Amino acid sequence: MELYRTESFGPSVSVVVVEDEEEAVQVANDTEYGLSGAVFTRDLARGLRVARRIESGAVHINAMTVHDECSLPHGGAKMSGWGRFNANWGIEEFLRLKTITYQE
C-alpha cells in the first residue's frame, strides 16, 4: 500500500504482523525513510537490541514518536530530513547518531 512506503507526517498507523524479532527489524527498515520509530516491549534489553538495528534518526522504546526532546539531536536517516537540527550536532553531520529513549 502507498501509505506504508510514504513519509506522510499525518496521523496514520500501519499494522504489520511479523513472526519474530528479525522479521520486525526487516519490516521496519524496508523503506527509503527513517525519521523516527517506536518499539513496544516488556524486555528493555530486547527493546535496546531492536532499537539499535532500526535505521532511523530516533527510536522510542515504549513511547510514541511525538515525544521527541528538543535538547536531543534530531534528524533522520536515509531520505528523511536535512541533517541534524540542534546546537552543535550539525557540525557532526558525518557521524551516524541515533537517539534512543525509554519509558517504563
Score class of each variant (00 low, 15 high):
H60L: 13
F9K: 04
R84N: 00
L3C: 00
G81F: 04
E104P: 15
R52H: 11
E19A: 11
V16H: 15
G47Y: 09
R84S: 01
L97F: 10
C70Y: 11
S12N: 09
M64R: 06
D68P: 02
N86P: 01
E2V: 10
A45R: 15
S71H: 13
G75Q: 03
G10D: 09
G57Y: 02
T6Y: 04
G75M: 06
V13W: 10
C70P: 14
A58H: 03
E32T: 11
D43Y: 15
V59A: 01
S56L: 02
A38Y: 11
V66I: 08
N62T: 00
V16S: 05
H67N: 12
Y4A: 12
T101K: 09
S71G: 02
V15E: 06
S8R: 10
A51Y: 05
G81Q: 11
G10C: 15
E92I: 10
E32N: 12
Y4C: 06
A38T: 12
G83M: 03
G76W: 09
A63N: 09
V18N: 03
K78D: 01
M79W: 07
A63C: 07
A87W: 10
R46L: 11
E7S: 08
G34R: 05
S80N: 03
L95G: 06
V16D: 06
N86M: 04
W82Q: 07
G34F: 07
E23K: 15
D68C: 02
E32Q: 11
D68H: 05
V50P: 10
E32R: 14
V39M: 05
A28R: 14
L35R: 01
V39H: 15
R42F: 01
L3T: 14
V13I: 13
K78N: 01
S8Y: 10
T6E: 09
I54S: 02
S71K: 06
M79L: 12
S8W: 09
F94N: 12
Y4W: 03
Q103K: 14
P73V: 06
R46C: 06
S14L: 10
W82F: 14
T101A: 05
G81N: 08
N86L: 10
H60F: 15
V39R: 13
F85M: 01
T31C: 08
W82A: 08
F94R: 15
R42V: 15
R46K: 15
I100N: 01
V25Q: 14
N29S: 03
F94E: 07
R53K: 12
D68F: 12
G81H: 06
L44V: 08
F40N: 03
G76P: 00
E93G: 08
V59R: 07
R52I: 03
A38W: 14
G76K: 04
V18G: 08
F85P: 00
L3D: 06
P73R: 05
L3Q: 11
H60P: 04
V66E: 00
M1V: 05
R5N: 13
E32H: 15
L95K: 14
Y33S: 02
L72Q: 09
D68E: 13
